[in-house]
């Protein structure tokens, strides 16, 4: 990577052929992440901007950026922004994630 160029900043770089055919079907959780951003950034709430979403994504290191899927990067960045703004605390997020996981395990 060129010095000073972020991992997201790929305009003009060399790259291989474009895969025009592959199209994954969006999973429901991916659509919900998209909807969450639309709602949180909309004029009724204005809790997060698209630029803040982008900043959170652009701050991912090259390894994480490349290894995460598109909406994984989004939910990571939305969550990061909500924590940064104090809308969520890391404690309550941790507890809620553990609860969701145990619910999922319980039904398996």
């Amino acid at each position: 990577m060129e010095k000073g160029r972020g991992v997201h900043d790929m305009g003009g770089l060399e790259a291989g052929p474009i895969d025009r055919e592959s199209q994954h079907a969006f999973e429901w959780w991916e659509k919900r992440v998209d909807a969450m951003l639309v709602l949180l950034s909309g004029k009724d709430r204005k809790l997060i901007t698209v630029d803040e979403l982008r900043r959170g994504i652009e701050e991912l290191g090259p390894g994480a950026y490349e290894n995460m899927s598109y909406y994984e990067r989004w939910i990571h960045s939305i969550t990061h922004a909500l924590l940064e703004k104090g809308i969520l605390s890391s404690d309550e997020l941790g507890r809620k994630m553990a609860e969701v996981e145990s619910r999922a395990d319980g039904s398996a």
């Binding site: 959780w29 809308i87 999922a104």
Partner: peptide, 25 residues
Amino acid sequence: DSSEGLGHYNVMEIAVRELLIDKGI
């Protein structure tokens, strides 16, 4: 939502959404 094999970010989405609903956001 309660399905086996939820990925980390899938869990994060569910948790964040439920917290935002709990808070009335």
